[in-house]
Design a protein around this nucleic acid. Sequence first.
DNA 1: CCCCGTCGGGACAATTTTGATCCCGGAGCA
DNA 2: TGCTCCGGGATCAAAATTGTCCCGACGGGG
Lengths: 342, 342
Amino acid sequence: MDSLAALQQLVPELEDFLERRYTLLKVIRNLAPVGRRQLATQVGSSERIIRAELDLLRDQGLVVTSSVGVSLSPQGELVLSSLQSMVREFHDLEYLEQTLAQALGVGRMIIVPGDADVDPGGKRDLALATVRFLQDTLRDGDILAVTGGTTLSKVAESFPAPEFTGRVTVVPVRGGLGEDVKIQANSIAARFAEGLGGSYRLLHAPEDVLPCYVEQILSEPRIRDVIALGRRANVLLHGIGTAEEMAKRRGFDEEIIMKLIAEGAVGEAFGCYFDARGNIVYNTTSIGLRLEDLEKIPLVVTVGGGRSKAWAVMSVLSRGYCDVCITDEGVARRLMTLKEIR
Amino acid sequence: MDSLAALQQLVPELEDFLERRYTLLKVIRNLAPVGRRQLATQVGSSERIIRAELDLLRDQGLVVTSSVGVSLSPQGELVLSSLQSMVREFHDLEYLEQTLAQALGVGRMIIVPGDADVDPGGKRDLALATVRFLQDTLRDGDILAVTGGTTLSKVAESFPAPEFTGRVTVVPVRGGLGEDVKIQANSIAARFAEGLGGSYRLLHAPEDVLPCYVEQILSEPRIRDVIALGRRANVLLHGIGTAEEMAKRRGFDEEIIMKLIAEGAVGEAFGCYFDARGNIVYNTTSIGLRLEDLEKIPLVVTVGGGRSKAWAVMSVLSRGYCDVCITDEGVARRLMTLKEIR
DNA sequence: CCCCGTCGGGACAATTTTGATCCCGGAGCA
DNA sequence: TGCTCCGGGATCAAAATTGTCCCGACGGGG
């Protein structure tokens, strides 16, 4: 019997303590410096109880308080990172990873604790996990293809000080979409290249075009070259969108959105809308990588978190081309119930 | 940073919980089946608090209650044994072992949690650790020399069902002393042989004799042979007595006892009384192994626990012939202060 | 320069949890 | 058959936890 399991059985209240303080430390790290009241609303607890916890954490030397609020001490950072594996164990994340990888036919699942829908810090953890995975995976000379979206944008912001000396070429494989420059594949590619210490290309094209113009755009040499480079990528990193959200971002009419949903569309990737089983419900004529291109890419990595994306994740993974899926506990637990496991 | 250390820092109350429940489980194991009130007096806590703990332990499935009292469930046994290493870590026993081994010039220290003076179960743990050590150490054909005393008697009682198939010869190396048959070296040798699955010899001689009779007794062939066999032992296991206790057991006059103590005698072994530095203060003319014989024995193992024996342990270890010392936390912590470490 | 929001810390009553102590019916034992 | 010890229930006082204010201080923005 594992001694940690034994401890858990002998001291069941440990889980509550660990959970509470661990999330508190995480929130403090995300918002530091921060005050009691703000913390209380963040973690959904009363001010007084937060105060008690803070007093204890201060006595333990894990946080420091100043007139502007409370922050993590170096010791606190250390404890937080040391406890990651233990929290994973308490949440049974290894079990979730293996079970879901098998159930969904994905090569590998990486699940981070938390839920991006509930905890604002969740997206950050997801992004950090993705960065870590990329740094462990990418090798000199690799070509990394990236898409757009808020999730990947968050990843792009999460690279630590550039120390990675690899020479990676980052290629955007989606055109421009919407108004926010930060979530464009081009911007993301640039920040990835900066963070990874490599170079990047730009895809000067819109995401959606009328079918009759596709030919014309693709005949543009610069665009064609970049797309061709994307097809030769070693690694593809792409986000997952809910069908509704992506439809809105594309500026679809209410009517069409309703029709999509009525037909069962729940997820979107590369301009295709999928139902829960992974069938294509609707297909836009989009510039960039196509679904069929994915089979030639050796390593396809999918990122997405927040329980509201559970259906979308399931639909996209059901297509079967995904090698690695990085998501969070919120999605994972909902997937377990959707797949009727246990 | 070790994740257990991090956990301890983030959840400091864990130590209290663990300590309380662990000792409670241990006491239950020792006394099962046992009632609340008896438990309360044993662990020095109130009845009500014991009740609360028992309710929780029952919910966790670690104990079972019947009309005759509460006992450990199989699950409880499992948890107890799984948690041993963690308790050792919480008490820093590894650190104590290494530090004291170095400070006292002993090859190896083995320290079990608890204090035999306070916790009645402490002696049992000490005995079990000794048994385990012997089973791990003894090989076919070894000669094991044993002395008498309450501690070794407890060890003798703690052998599990005989499964060890080695052929060990157990030799008593002390004569008869006092009235209690159970603590005689002869009885102990017999039970050791039974527990280890070997044979034993008997030493038919008193412990203390007048000097003029020593020659005569040693001329007896059976006695001489057994003593000679003891001198050739591979392993010697001997207990440690406080000077006062051993003097009383020998039936010394109050006057002589006072004189011994005045001269600084604190420990006794093999008929010699030592002061704190290991100097011989008084020497009885005793039958059996002599102090000078110990140097020829490859492995000398010393056992003794209960903080009242700390001085005795220190004095005996100061002689320098001890290879392995098995003791408990009560002694170890007092030794740390006596040696002025930290 | 001052105002305003938020900060940490102090104070205090309300509430919940905890602790000590009986009591009772029942099971084993002599 | 009486006696002792068992678990479980009940009660009440003490202690802790918790919710809610208030205060002076600091800092950023108007």
